[in-house]
Design a protein around this nucleic acid. Structure first.
Length: 138
DNA sequence: GCCAACGTTGGC
DNA sequence: GCCAACGTTGGC
């Protein structure tokens, strides 16, 4: 089992949109970055990821599960890009803000802090646990 | 709205 | 293949 973090601008695709999709899930389309694509290729069905709102919120707001592995992105005409499909699992009772992550010494190495622009990031098991706890889940 | 970081493009 | 110019992302 691996852990990840997926970024989205709420104005583009929000956590509420994701939740509304239910178990059907939604293809994570629109990634146009090789590093991010490579991350998605490493995902397996059953992996979990934080759903992070960039821009206005700057916080992890929920957890999604990978329900389909990387496949060609239907919104891409060049054939170069891929996407996974994820479904909402549960909301974080307390969103974990970027500020909170920065204030937590154990999370200072997170990609969220180190590799600001990457939209699909790996999360270590330890980081996963700490963010969960900070978010109000055990 | 600004700026830093960083990926991409194109000329050589 | 190098590197300058340019575009995009995302935090502030």
């Amino acid at each position: 089992m691996k852990y990840w973090l997926l970024k989205s601008e709420p104005s583009d695709w929000s956590w509420d949109d994701q939740v509304a999709k239910g178990d059907e899930g939604e293809a994570w389309t629109g990634v146009r970055n090789y590093q991010a694509r490579n991350m998605m290729r490493q995902m397996s069905v059953g992996d979990l990821a934080f759903f992070y709102h960039s821009q206005s919120d700057k916080a992890c707001v929920g957890i999604v599960e990978v329900i389909a592995p990387a496949a060609p992105d239907p919104t891409d005409e060049t054939g170069k890009w891929e996407c996974v499909t994820v479904k909402a699992v549960e909301s974080l009772p307390r969103p974990v803000t970027l500020a909170a992550v920065k204030e937590t010494p154990e999370l200072s190495e997170m990609s969220l802090v180190k590799t600001v622009r990457l939209s699909v990031q790996p999360v270590t098991e330890n980081e996963w646990r700490i963010v969960l706890r900070t978010g109000g889940l055990t």
